[in-house]
Nucleic acid binder design. Structure first.
Lengths: 106, 106
DNA sequence: ATTGTATATACATTGACATGTATATACGTT
DNA sequence: AACGTATATACATGTCAATGTATATACAAT
């Protein structure tokens, strides 16, 4: 999870991921779409690959990259667990002060 | 969104966030729970604060930090948009090859 | 075999950021 | 006012990772 976050935090890789969300793309297509140098795209793809976020398949000299579900699903679930934040009714600060008072009393 | 990811990518801040998910905490409580030096906790909290991910309220000398929903909700929605990855039936690679063939023909 | 196209790797340089440590500020208590 | 506790800031240092650039590999076509 840590690795996935770190990998996504880099803006170019974020862009690559958003592009691949549309569907698989070859390296050249990514280079053209994003205007990043080819070596850098390859390097970012390598990092994404090592993070398990993409896979590549060969078609002649082309390498077609596509997203892998796993890490995204994992983070999706993690962020879901924060939904208490915007669904919770009782203000957390009030709750904290209640606990605080309790400790003072004891 | 970029900022939120970058902020979360740092392991100590990730830990702080997980801790605050349990409820508001003072700086001292965070220091004790995570075993990070106080200046570093304060600094990480500052970064989290600037990212809009936490807010603090004062109780005497204490600063009580709590999570702010916004950025988490935003990322939750973003990751939701990837659910096509694990719900999609048609293999994306096949799809790509179909498009590829189409371009060759034209 | 030679050439062209597509992609990957290697390496040096730079910049950003986490960490360690010292110190400042804020507030309460006596 | 003086001291203790809680928290924030400042600054120097080291590390890691992104970038620029050159080059290597893989495959296809002629």
């Amino acid at each position: 999870m840590q690795v996935t976050l770190l990998t996504l935090a880099e803006p170019n890789r974020f862009s690559i991921v958003e592009l691949l969300k549309m569907g698989p793309k070859s390296v050249g297509e990514i280079v053209q779409a994003l205007g990043i140098s080819q070596p850098h795209v390859s390097r970012h793809l390598r990092i994404l690959s090592e993070a398990g976020m993409v896979r590549s398949r060969s078609k002649a000299q082309l390498r077609i990259y596509s997203l892998e579900a796993g890490p995204f699903q994992e983070l999706d679930e993690w962020f879901d667990s924060f939904s208490i934040l915007w669904e919770e009714r009782l203000d957390n600060f009030e709750e904290y002060m209640l606990d605080y008072k309790k400790k003072e009393d004891s």
